[in-house]
Computed example of a mutant assay.
Amino acid sequence: MIQDPPANTGCTEVLAEVWLFLDHECDQERRRLLQQHLDECAPCLAEYGIDEKLKALLARKCGGEAAPAALKDRLRSQIRSAVLEQAQVTVESGPDGTSVSVSHQRTEYRRSGG
Results as ranks from 00 to 15, higher is better:
residue 1 M to F: 10
residue 2 I to Q: 08
residue 4 D to V: 01
residue 4 D to R: 11
residue 4 D to E: 07
residue 5 P to R: 07
residue 5 P to N: 06
residue 6 P to E: 10
residue 7 A to D: 13
residue 11 C to R: 03
residue 11 C to V: 01
residue 11 C to W: 00
residue 12 T to W: 01
residue 12 T to A: 06
residue 13 E to S: 05
residue 14 V to F: 00
residue 15 L to Q: 03
residue 16 A to T: 06
residue 17 E to R: 14
residue 18 V to E: 09
residue 19 W to M: 05
residue 19 W to I: 04
residue 22 L to M: 02
residue 25 E to K: 11
residue 25 E to A: 12
residue 29 E to Q: 14
residue 30 R to T: 15
residue 31 R to W: 03
residue 34 L to K: 04
residue 34 L to S: 03
residue 36 Q to H: 07
residue 40 E to I: 01
residue 43 P to Q: 03
residue 46 A to C: 01
residue 46 A to Y: 01
residue 47 E to Q: 04
residue 49 G to I: 02
residue 50 I to D: 05
residue 50 I to Y: 06
residue 53 K to P: 00
residue 54 L to Q: 06
residue 56 A to I: 09
residue 57 L to D: 02
residue 58 L to Y: 02
residue 62 C to Y: 11
residue 64 G to I: 04
residue 64 G to H: 15
residue 65 E to S: 06
residue 70 A to M: 12
residue 74 R to D: 10
residue 74 R to W: 10
residue 74 R to S: 08
residue 75 L to I: 15
residue 77 S to W: 01
residue 77 S to G: 09
residue 79 I to E: 13
residue 79 I to L: 15
residue 79 I to F: 12
residue 81 S to W: 02
residue 82 A to G: 06
residue 83 V to H: 10
residue 84 L to D: 08
residue 85 E to H: 12
residue 85 E to W: 06
residue 86 Q to V: 15
residue 88 Q to A: 13
residue 91 V to P: 02
residue 92 E to Y: 11
residue 93 S to E: 09
residue 94 G to E: 05
residue 94 G to W: 07
residue 95 P to D: 14
residue 98 T to E: 11
residue 100 V to G: 06
residue 100 V to D: 08
residue 103 S to M: 05
residue 104 H to S: 11
residue 111 R to P: 05
residue 113 G to E: 14
